[in-house]
Nucleic acid binder design. Structure first.
Length: 820
RNA sequence: GCGAAAGUGGCGGAAUCGGUAGACGCGCCAGCCUUAGGAGCUGGUGGCCCGAGGGCCGUGGGGGUUCGAGUCCCCCCUUUCGCACCA
């Protein structure tokens, strides 16, 4: 009788006592770094989504282990950040007390779930032993000129009293508390990730990642090719307005310009009579957050005329300069040349304010019909003409009229370039990464400000800058960081001149903590260095990284960036941290997302108590394709439960009978076929079909009440290892194997010669419809197949008197007779 | 709006170099076993028709290519997930 509780406790104890899951990090001959995204240890405990993610990754890790690799499968806790801080405020427990409790609870839950973690190499990002090195990384970037302080518009949540990243704002509201978000300008630390943008993009061509994740990163980076064009201000002024455009071919149609309300030249351009209106508009725009500004849904275009003019460098004409909030300061140059004929937004704006619309590109047919392309008139309906294809031609564009648009773009840029008015330019959507947070629960940024010496980095030997235990850590509504209120923290001595200095009181973004945790895992034994070179050589880069797609753009991009920087600075010998990445899907329950409000959250403890970890593991991976997610239904869990119980019974019966060898050719073939398929499925993370194949094999082994021989069933036990490791260990021991299975068994091999039979069933179709199946010798000739088919009564009936016009024969599969 | 993926029995899902649709599991039905069982075992289970030999229909909808389409092409519908005034 299968009793999961005792079996699981027994083997968990065995693994812990024998260090089964702790590879020799200095000497393992075949290292395999199996990484999964470390969790944020929420106070609610392990979510079944975490368990799903880890279990799939563990299937893969155990599979590699059984195939002879020395698998290092560490885990840690990403415990800094707004989540924890807000929760701590809510329940009124200090995060320094709350987090250790949550971690202890997570650890307890993870240890009973059968995952092959090496508990001797964990990380906790809130531990000074860890964040000391996070601060060290900041200093490396600072020295390399990649960490800079600059003033920037930021999203500001008036409730959380903090700056939010764009991705923390949803529908203009704070992702956490739902408060409307506004804008503020603050001086903050930025990492210059844009310096690395080309490499970050280019390497996407060769790293082996889930395609959708690659696409997400490419889109996030948002590379677009175009030109930077210079518009002089009209009149006697010196200044000029730079714009980025992907359509320099349309410059003759630029009939006005639009600046972002925050653009620095607005002041200069605004005429006295327009000043009040401009100021009112700018003030209103500042009240709207950066994300709200981007909402497209039928928001009417708004804007005001500055009273100023610029000169279109192509036509030489003065064109009016407006400001409008549909132009974003953080993209391009914060200013656009408006071409209402060929941009839908500009078109709408022009309509709204009665500005001139001048089409300068037309479909080839329109131009071909005209004698002089420079005077062609393209009639526009309610939309701009925005197609951009090879066939279209320039019109109304001076000497460039008649040229294909693409060629025209290049020629125009060249022409403007000769006069210093333009150049080709690549623009990116990606921005520098603001890492400052005006919060408490994060790693302090290791910087000092000294009146004499200016900005001074904390010397490496003085790290860590320890986060003090602040009783009052709630952020203030003045934007002053909590640490700025703790004098004993911020008062310091300047390491350079010995005078008085003030510490930076912002803490760093949680995403910084997680950029390098995987680098730390193999090196947690060392407290005098972040990353041990020899351990790193042996274990990194990561062989397989599995995680959720929600981190496709932020964590994974930042982590790649930091790794590249560390590579350039000589700290690691590779520039891509994750050679292979696979996303896993999301698990839902009864067709709906799990959420506390719906009350449909699966509590892993409850299910493990009731069914055992092995059954939960099997069920989680059986309920759908791992990379696509699946639907957790309570009724379905009994399938895997019965399966494991039957395996257990079958082993007991086999041991009692004691038969060996492969007396039955059909069964022997099934064993080989299953090994072949399961091996393939495991390699491609198709765990659901691997489990199905093992179920099928078990059904074959005990079909009609037969008792399998020991040799027939042994491979099944080994293949069960990654799926139900506790039970597999137990059964392996029952079969006389030396524990642990993971040390002493190796993945079964199959004999290709034993996969097939001498005779095959082939389908016989008449005019494409299945009419019979016939048994043939493998590799039978078409003639033989046709003869056999024609002898079949059913086939004869369907052919009637008709004659065969054509025969399609797929050897060993199908014969199609086309008659008529 | 743009991008990506997906729509298959009562349900979760198999099968996509075009070649016997529905593996495996849940549920359901029948039988066995049992004092009993929310246990176990055996068999059955896409729909419709039937003369019991079979026949017809069937992978979101419509068209197409092909000897043959869940799979490829075109149009449409729906769902999920990204990104969203990106110049």
């Amino acid at each position: 009788m299968y009793d999961p509780k005792s079996v699981e406790e027994k083997w968990q104890a065995h693994w812990a006592e024998n260090g089964t899951n702790e590879p020799d990090l200095d000497a393992a001959p075949s290292p395999f770094f199996n990484l999964m995204m470390f969790p944020y240890p929420s106070a609610e405990g392990l979510h079944v989504g975490n368990l799903y993610a880890f279990t799939g990754a563990d299937f893969h890790g155990r599979f590699q282990r059984l195939r002879g690799r020395d698998v290092f499968e560490p885990i840690g806790f990403d415990a800094f950040g707004i989540h924890s801080e807000n929760y701590a405020l809510k329940v009124d427990v200090h995060p320094m007390d709350l987090i250790p409790r949550s971690i202890a609870n997570f650890t307890r839950q993870l240890k009973r779930s059968g995952i092959m973690f090496d508990w001797s190499h964990t990380v906790d990002t809130t531990n000074p032993d860890y964040y000391r090195w996070t601060q060290w990384i900041f200093l490396q970037l600072y020295r390399a000129g990649l960490a800079v302080k600059k003033e920037a518009p930021v999203n500001w949540c008036p409730s959380c009293k903090t700056v939010l990243a764009n991705e923390q704002v949803e529908d203009g509201k704070c992702e956490r508390c739902g408060t409307e978000v506004g804008q503020r300008f603050l001086s903050q630390w930025f990492f210059r990730i844009t310096e690395y943008v080309e490499r970050l993009l280019k390497n996407l061509d060769w790293i082996d990642w889930s395609p959708s994740t690659l696409t997400a990163q490419r889109n996030w980076i948002g590379r677009s090719e175009g030109a930077l064009l210079r518009f002089r201000l009209a009149g006697e002024r010196e200044e000029s307005l730079d714009v980025f455009t992907t359509r320099p071919d349309t410059i003759f149609g630029a009939t006005f310009m639009v600046l972002a309300p925050e653009h620095p030249l607005v002041e200069e351009l605004t005429s006295e009579d327009r000043r009040d209106e401009v100021e009112t508009y700018r003030a209103a725009a500042a009240d709207v957050d950066l994300v709200e500004r981007r909402k497209t849904d039928d928001r009417k275009k708004t804007g005001v005329f500055t009273g100023g003019f610029a000169v279109n460098p192509a036509t030489g004409e003065d064109i009016p300069v407006w400001i409008a909030d549909y132009v974003l300061m953080e993209y391009g140059t914060g200013a656009i040349m408006a071409v209402p004929g060929h941009d839908q937004r500009d078109f709408e704006f022009a309509r709204q304010f009665g500005l001139e619309i001048l089409p300068v590109v037309a479909p080839a047919e329109v131009v071909d019909d005209a004698s002089d392309p420079s005077t062609v008139i393209l009639q526009l309906g309610d939309e701009a003409f925005v197609e951009h294809t090879e066939g279209e031609r320039l019109i109304n564009s001076g000497k460039f009229s008649g040229l294909p648009a693409t060629e025209g773009a290049a020629r125009i840029v060249e022409w403007l370039g000769e006069r210093g008015l333009g150049e080709p330019k690549v623009n990116y959507r990606l921005h520098d990464w603001c890492i400052s947070r005006q919060r408490y629960w994060g790693a302090p940024i290791p910087i000092l400000y000294c009146d004499t010496c200016g900005t001074v980095p904390v010397p490496e030997e003085d790290l860590p800058v320890v986060l003090p235990h602040l009783e009052q850590f709630k952020p203030g509504d003045d934007g002053i960081a909590p640490l700025a209120k703790d004098e004993s923290f911020y008062r310091a001595t300047c390491p350079s001149c010995g005078g008085e200095a003030r510490r930076e009181t912002d803490v760093s973004d949680t995403f910084l903590d997680s950029t390098w945790y995987f680098l730390r895992y193999p090196s947690t034994d060392f407290d005098d260095r972040a990353i041990d070179p020899s351990r790193t050589d042996r274990w990194l880069p990561v062989d397989m990284y599995i995680g959720g797609e929600e981190h496709a753009v932020l964590h994974l991009l930042y982590s790649r960036f930091i790794t590249m920087v560390l590579h350039d600075l000589g700290h690691v010998p590779f520039e891509e941290p994750y050679v292979r990445f696979r996303k896993h899907g999301l698990i839902i329950r009864d067709g709906a997302k799990m959420s506390k409000t719906k009350g449909n959250v699966v509590n892993p403890d409850e299910f493990i108590d009731r069914y055992g970890a092995d059954t939960i593991r099997t069920y989680l991976m059986f309920l759908g394709p791992y990379q696509e997610g699946g639907d957790f239904r309570d009724s379905g869990i009994v399938g895997p439960q019965r399966f494991l119980s039957r395996v257990s019974d079958a082993i007991a019966a086999a041991v009692e009978a004691g038969a060996t060898g492969f007396p039955d050719a059909v069964v022997e073939r099934a064993v080989h076929q299953t090994i072949s398929q399961v091996t393939e499925d495991f390699a491609s993370l198709s765990f659901n079909t691997a489990i199905a194949a093992l179920m099928e094999l078990l059904n074959t082994l005990r079909a009609g009440g037969r008792v399998p021989t020991l040799d027939e069933i042994r491979p099944l036990v080994i293949m069960l290892g990654p799926i139900a490791p506790h039970l597999a260990e137990e059964l392996w021991e029952t079969l006389g194997g030396e524990p642990s299975l993971f040390d002493h068994a190796s993945w079964p091999a199959f004999d290709p010669a034993k996969l097939t039979t001498d005779s095959v069933e082939i389908a016989v179709q008449v005019n494409g419809k299945l009419r019979a199946t016939i048994s043939l010798e493998r590799g039978a000739s078409e003639e033989a197949a046709r003869a056999a088919a024609l002898a079949d009564e059913g086939v004869q009936r369907h052919m009637g008197n008709a004659s065969i016009r054509k025969t399609i024969y797929v050897p060993d599969r199908l014969l199609n007779l086309v008659v008529g």
